[in-house]
Amino acid sequence: MASLSSPLRVCRGILKELRAIQGASYKQSLAYNYVMDQFRKNKVTGERYCRAQQEAHHASLTYLCLLASTRNHLALHTLYHSKGERSTEQAAGLVGLRLPSQPGGKGWEE
């Protein structure tokens, strides 16, 4: 647990993700207000052992991970997997092959 990053950094991380989701008006969103509220409420002294704060911290890290991973996953999905299957020609091209053309070349029927 010692490796957890500071609550402030997590908070900023979540806000960054919310901004990526909702654009410039993210400050009016439900999530923004809730997250800010929670971080303010749980801002207790770090000197004492505080179970509730640790719990909130872990939950906020988890939420940050959820938002960031979903965004990254979707980005990779749209980049690599969203276009469906490749055509036979493209698939052959991947391994440096070309599809055979018509025997005798173009206009062979003549």
Binding site: E55, H58, A59, T62, Y63, C65, L66, S69, T70, N72, H73, L76, H77, L79, Y80, H81
Partner: peptide
């Protein structure tokens, strides 16, 4: 390989985080 390993990892992280948060909440 980004389109396989990273793709899987982010999906796994997202799903795991969602499940953990769901239990917590």
């Amino acid at each position: 390989v980004e389109w396989a390993h990273d793709y899987d990892m982010y999906e796994l992280r997202a799903r795991t985080a969602a499940g953990a948060l769901f239990v917590h909440l």
